[in-house]
Amino acid sequence: MFCRHILQATNRLIGQSSMNIQYIGCRNIKRWVAPTMKELSRRRKKVGPDPNKPRSSYLEWNYDVELHCFQNRIGETFDKNILSEALVQREYANIQEFKAKEEGNESYIPEQHNYDLAKDGNAIISDYIKEEYSKNYPEEIAITVQKYLTTDEMLAHIAKHLGFTDLIKAVEYPLEERTLADSFKALVAALSLSSDLERAQLFVKDFVIAQMNGKDIYDIWTPEKPYEYVVKLLEQRGIKKVEPRLCNQSAVNTILANYQVGLYDSNNKSLLGIGWGENVQIAKDTAALDAIQRLYNSYARK
């Protein structure tokens, strides 16, 4: 640039245009690039972020391949028709049919949707969870766990981590939890139809019951009045008189008071449960909860 100016200046001075002006081009970022980019990004930010598009709208998308990979990922084989049925939302199927009618398309085959499959799947999942937990815990706990695991939120979470979001044909985007949960249930039903009930139950065990890993059952279920509950429970098992006793206490006159209460069997003076709390009542309840936990199978000392 600089050289060109000098050349032009000397040219003017000499007054000869026969001298060749050598334009020495420089390979640098041009002056106009930065302001242009700034303006473009300003306009982009003004419009707002790009809306998220579903994966199926991309160029690199092959539904059949994705379905095939999905089956391999889970480790199960499905009948192709049943699988595609399980992944179609009812509203979507209805709208497709409506559109076809509007267009006057007579040879349109209405798509099967997953409403019925979802109901069947829900039954399979709930029954299996209840069955598994009834082996070691009483009915109330089994039912509470079943309710916890079959919520839409939980099933949607599992479905997302198996890759359902891109495969489901639905009306809305991004997908609602209800849609994902329904599709998951429909898949379980589809599996029981394609293979057998046992495989479907194994699938439920591996993916739904596995979500209880690391979670304490007694965080999900607590009896309302622990002490009365425990007394009833122990009566059933032959321990008629239960004595709560204060084992330890510290910092009694302060805010951070601490009482440790133990529940003892009056006959053989054995310890049934021990718990601590800010006052004696809370400590007694905690001890009752501890006793309940010791009675049922999985005992983890707190």
């Binding site: 990922r73 889970i74 599992i158 997302k160 981590h161 591996d206 993916f207 979500q211």
Partner: peptide
Amino acid sequence: TPGQNGVGRYVCQLQRVV
């Protein structure tokens, strides 16, 4: 671990590669 991966069966976490 996304979705308690090893507890039941192992699921390969890579969905697709372009």
